[in-house]
Each structure stands twice: as structure tokens, then as C-alpha cells.
Nucleic acid binder design. Structure first.
Lengths: 141, 141
DNA sequence: TTGCGTGCAAAGGTTTTGCATGGCA
DNA sequence: TGCCATGCAAAACCTTTGCACGCAA
């Protein structure tokens, strides 16, 4: 099945340019819209969702959800960091709600174990580790 | 800070009884409401959300989200499997939607690493590994 | 010229909230 | 009796959809 021909539009270029200025960061559709509004450019909500979803399909961007009440997050994937070594993993603190980006070499090895011994191929971009961050652990005592 | 006194109500008992009949299964708030409606009992939407969220706080139930458009899932946690040795870990297949319960001794060790080297205390009951199950991987070829 | 992209507004669906009433302790 | 729980409806919120028009190729 062929996919439809895709056009390169000004909005798409603007979106990609913006995303490239914030590598590794998470933004919501509404964050993106606010950024353009602050810079005098208006992009419709639907357009932002449509372009972002298209980029997810194209593998340029990942999308993930922390929980059902907060909006979806999008993150631009830098082409040069597509190698397994520099992927960041997401830890969400259940107490303060902060999302910590973890760079840990043991995680890919752990995922490899799960694949080889349990046949399940973990999607690193999608999986979120829930727990308590060090700051909140200290406060708890 | 003290937490408020909590009451034991008929709706709460009904909800817990129902959840205990479907251990390891995931239900949405709307599934739960439909179940009671089919059995002639009416429980308001808000009540279901409020009780379910309270059970999550109490550690009786876990809640997780597949993506931002589908509703949140709730799962009753059987008390007898609360001991560390028999905790099962949840893997959700992004393709077929199935949830695989994994018993793996490397997971607690991995979580220990995250805690000791990165200061983040993973909550095993809440964390869900997203990815592709072996069946779907085979179908993909 | 063809058909994809866009804007706007409306619709769709889930979850939360306000308030009066009912029920547990 | 004092709070907490509930029901109902409305509100809030994110995301998708329909349609007419604009624009890329």
C-alpha cells in the first residue's frame, strides 16, 4: 500500500526548525502553539497535531503519555543520536510529578535480557518508570 | 499531615468485590460502570473515578495509561502477591494490546541499580513496560 | 490542475468539579 | 452530630473531524 504524496509546507519547516532548537526536550502540542503565538506566528491547533503525528509516523519525533489527564508529549529525535547509546529513559516521580531523563547504559542491557529470556521487545521511548525521585525521597526522610 | 478519615461504603465494597473477580485484568472506569449497570446497580461516574483513585493511593489498585486518547486502565492488585518475591511485572503489547505478566528476578536487581546509581526508586507495581510481544513479533516477521 | 495542507469551529470522549443530599461512624 | 461519600450535571480539557479555501508540485 502506497502512502500519499507529502508536501513540504512553510508550517512544517517552521515546526521542524523549532523542534531542532530543543533537542531532548518534551513539549506538548499546546506548548508548540504558544511558542509560535509568542513569536507572532499563528498555527492552528489541528495543523500542529497533524504535523506532529505525521512526524511520529516518519520516525522524526516520538510521542508518549505520562498519564491520562496530562497532554501527550512530543520529542524531536536528533538523527545523530539515534544510536542506542544516547537514548534517554523517562522516570516520572509520583510525588512531585517531575520527569527525570536518565542516561544509563544498563537499561539497554536489561531490555536485551527481557527480549532474549522473555521474548518481549521493550520500546524504550514509550516506557516510563514510575517511582520516587531522590529529592522527594529526602523530604520523606 | 494527617490524611482524612475514610468511610467504608456499600459502593466501595461492591467495587472491590467486582475487582477481585477479575485479578490481573485491566478495566476502564467506563467498563466498571457498564458492569454495574448490566447488573442493575447504578454507580455515578464521579464515584467510580473517586473510589478508583482512592484505591490507587491506598495501593490496592494500579492505574496506567496506554496513550493520551484512550481511557486510563485500572487493575486490582492481589494482596497475596504483594511479597517482593512474587511480584509480577507488566508488559503491554503496543500491537495486540495484551498485557503479559512477567516473573523475572533481574528486574528487582535492575531497579536496585537505578536506585543506587541514579537515586530513583522505581515503583514496580505502577511501571508498565511497553513494547512488542513475541507473538506479534513473529507475525511481523 | 490536482490533491495535500490549513484554519476555524464544532464535535467527541474522558475526567474533574460544584453543590445539595445521603450515609457512615 | 460531624464528616465523608454520592449523584447529577456542568465544566474543563485534550484531540479529532468536517469543510471550504489556500498552496505545493
Amino acid at each position: 500500500m502506497e502512502s500519499r504524496a507529502k508536501y513540504r509546507t512553510k508550517h512544517r519547516d517552521d515546526l521542524l526548525s523549532f523542534l531542532r532548537t530543543i533537542p531532548g526536550q518534551h513539549v506538548t502540542a499546546s506548548d508548540v502553539q504558544a511558542y509560535f503565538k509568542n513569536n507572532g506566528k499563528n498555527i492552528g491547533t489541528a495543523t500542529i497535531y497533524r504535523q506532529l503525528d505525521r512526524m511520529v509516523d516518519e520516525g522524526l519525533v516520538t510521542k508518549f503519555t505520562i498519564d491520562s489527564t496530562s497532554p501527550a508529549c512530543y520529542q524531536y529525535l536528533e538523527p545523530e543520536t539515534h544510536c542506542q547509546d544516547d537514548i534517554c529513559y523517562h522516570c516520572k516521580c509520583e510525588e512531585c510529578g517531575r520527569v527525570i531523563h536518565l542516561h544509563c547504559h544498563e537499561i539497554p542491557e536489561f531490555h536485551k535480557h527481557i527480549l532474549e529470556h522473555h521474548g518481549f521487545e521493550v520500546n524504550s521511548m514509550r516506557t516510563v518508570y514510575y517511582g520516587i525521585c531522590s529529592d522527594c525521597a529526602k523530604k520523606r526522610g
